[in-house]
Design a protein around this nucleic acid. Structure first.
Lengths: 251, 251
DNA sequence: GTCTATAGCAAGATAGAC
DNA sequence: GTCTATCTTGCTATAGAC
């Protein structure tokens, strides 16, 4: 899933570049901010747990605060709104996806397995949250929401996600048309968004249809990318690239 | 665009629950239910008007009731929730799209202009509602919502929409692989969903980027459909069809 | 800077009287 | 069928303790 870099509700943020990965066992330094960070984490953890247990809509801010042992106002001190709690989820899973993709990208050299590995890793990371992802998905789907994967506010997270796919392409041995190579990472990210959309709607046990979609689509993409170098298909490829260019204007 | 003025906003015929009484009913025009139907219509019309004027989220049930001259509880008597009011809008535009597509489908015989006409007609019909479509789009995007285009409840409307694209294909002179011909209507409908998604997010003046997307994508689809008969591409086509088959299972 | 407690508003939704 | 009264919940505001 794409995330959204928040920066919105941060109390005092000098340079919090430290990724919010699980291993934030920074030393005993900065005693002043430590307490706040701890409370923030506590609220977020509690909220995510409750979301997973009872669903997003069914989890009230009152209950989150109560379970976390803080006052409602305190939850709002750290998170501007209930939706902002979702951003925490986004950021975390974005980082987790990147981490999970690491080993594959370091090992595999061919395009297809690289892509396949990254896509499955993305689903792996999100799998535990499938049931409640569906309930809050609509929040992210609203075009005007900063949580939308296409919004200006989520540009940094989006770029980070696209970067993963750029790594997929650039680190592979695949021979590509130069222009296609340039566009492919963003196209693959778009495809990933499609997979996520499919996954959200996927009600099959363990979301196995999504797994099958990935396993079937990756060789297809691989084949199409190879075919794109055929002479008969050059015009079609140019047409695709031209379409992208045309549509992108007027952002 | 394609000269099809839509008369979009006008309620072609809001047929809610035509009870299809088995002729035996007295000819007294069912006085008992008439009043209820009238109230129902009044509430719906008022709601849609306010949605267009002020947006979905900004229109409260209290205001709808007040403007319609009824009590809040009465509105809930007829519509289970605020979201259920959207269903009326949905049905109406579906019918308008079909009507707007009629002339094109009766005139054009080649695949590309048929498809292009139908897509532009769809955008024409929805254009007046773009600003508020974005605000309530999220409700339709929720997978668990009956308003989702993929939900069981919207199956009839979905089938009706797919039927339009079946007409696009079947009424065209295009020569197609039989299997592809069978799948194409649903694929085109999926593509249409993609166009709608793009349109909802399209903030360019008059949503001209969406128009360009259509104008660029249609010839491309046309070309790919033609190319699919090339011998080099047969395996790829088979692969695409196999993927669809695989993914469709487990519905 | 962090946190509590509490009061209150707006709006979606419901209960029960008539 | 229709109403009024009420509940719920996201969210705000304030005043003050450490």
């Amino acid at each position: 899933m794409t995330g959204v870099t928040t920066a919105a509700a941060e109390p005092a943020e000098p340079q919090p570049d430290a990724p919010t990965e699980a291993g934030t066992e920074a030393g005993t330094a900065k005693p002043r901010r430590a307490r706040g960070e701890q409370t923030r984490q506590l609220i977020l953890e509690t909220a995510l747990r409750l979301f997973r247990e009872r669903g997003y809509a069914e989890t009230t801010m009152r209950v989150i605060a109560k379970e976390a042992g803080v006052a409602v106002g305190n939850a709002y001190y750290y998170f501007d709104s209930k939706e902002h709690l979702i951003q925490g989820f986004y950021d975390r899973n974005q980082a987790a996806h990147h981490a999970a993709a690491g080993p594959i990208l370091a090992t595999e050299k061919e395009l297809a397995p690289r892509l396949r590995g990254v896509l499955h890793a993305g689903i792996d990371v999100n799998a535990p949250y499938h049931s409640f992802a569906a309930t809050f998905f609509k929040t992210a789907a609203e075009p005007t929401s900063p949580l939308s994967p296409f919004s200006r506010e989520s540009a940094p997270a989006r770029e980070a996600a696209i970067a993963i796919f750029r790594e997929v392409v650039d680190g592979s041995t695949a021979k590509l048309d130069p222009e296609l190579r340039k566009e492919l990472p963003e196209l693959l990210w778009l495809g990933w968004m499609g997979v996520v959309l499919f996954w959200v709607y996927d009600k099959s046990p363990g979301q196995r249809r999504t797994r099958r979609l990935i396993d079937g689509a990756v060789p297809l993409i691989d084949r199409l990318v190879s075919l794109s170098r055929l002479r008969v298909l050059r015009p079609a490829l140019r047409q695709v690239l031209a379409l992208i260019e045309t549509v992108r204007k007027d952002d």
